[in-house]
Design a protein around this nucleic acid. Structure first.
Lengths: 158, 158
DNA sequence: ATTGACATTGGAGTGACTCCAAGGTTTAGC
DNA sequence: GCTAAACCTTGGAGTCACTCCAATGTCAAT
């Protein structure tokens, strides 16, 4: 199969595949003699698919390539000694990220509530409103304090 | 305050602050006359803190700078019309990411279980084992199939 | 006067792509 | 056989958001 089909099947761009080859993390495949086109086997598909899956875990390219290489070459030693460490680290990282995202989402939700309230206020007021209401809601929700309209800790305008 | 203290207080590098200034997303602050050092006020701290917080939501730098700018300048119009759209999009993205990470973590956990099992097997066998056990566990767990040792769908070696 | 911690600038490097131009090849239809 | 579209090739430049570096300047304390 040629590079386009491989890319299609795995869901990456041909540029990405060529980039991997150029940076040495994927071996150069056979070339169809005379026309220079890259030619891939089902085995190559599996190798690349694993690499891409590992990349989707946001494992740095070099590490992901090493891991995929071990599996491909059947090197149990590396697989059983280095992999567990890598995986444990990854899982901790994933947990940290989920926590961070949850916190962000909570802040975003609060911000959203503030904005809805402020917009209702604006509508009731006929479109004009003290300038810092919404802005301070943003800062309160995202940041925990408003500098431009309550620099000394006052409760805000209006 | 000088750039080092600002960076310290917000938890970014001085390089980052200078980079923001160079790329035009932060205004040039006053310079202490004669020595050329940047000099920041508490207002600048709040502005940058908001920008950095928005960046931590992985909002692209340009967008984050625009949002922080609105708040800083008290432009309710943009704040109330554009922000809600941005926030809704952000929250959807956050939800997607959390789902993705959860799935990854489940796959990682499965992989870990496989490896523990295989290592026990290895120890019982005295260190030597059929080469593909661990490798195929990686592929099974991460990828859902092993090409190198069961290319035709067989159950695996050993 | 010297040391050390700060500051300045311009410019290069990083990771992981992504896009582009200028060309060669293959395939389908007429 | 000719043409057009869809593929492939290469080298190289661009992107984002920093990060690091060298060479130099400033300042406070000993």
């Amino acid at each position: 199969m040629r590079i386009g089909e491989l890319a299609e099947r795995i869901g990456v761009s041909t540029d990405t595949i060529r980039f991997y080859e150029k940076s040495g993390v994927l071996p150069r495949p056979d070339r169809q003699r005379s026309n220079g086109y890259r030619s891939y086997s089902e085995l190559d598909v599996e190798h690349l698919r694993l690499l891409i899956d590992l990349r989707r875990l946001e494992i740095p390219l070099e590490d992901a390539a090493r891991m995929a290489g071990w599996c491909h070459a059947g090197h149990c030693e590396s697989t059983t000694s280095e992999l567990p460490r890598l995986i444990a680290g990854r899982r901790a990282e994933i947990a940290r990220r989920i926590d961070g995202l949850r916190e962000l989402d909570a802040r975003m939700a609060e911000l959203e509530r503030h904005l809805v309230r402020d917009r209702r206020t604006l509508r009731l007021l006929g479109g004009e409103a003290p300038c810092c209401d919404a802005a301070s809601a943003v800062i309160d929700a995202v940041d925990g304090g408003c500098a431009c309209c309550s620099p000394a800790g006052s409760a805000g305008p209006s």
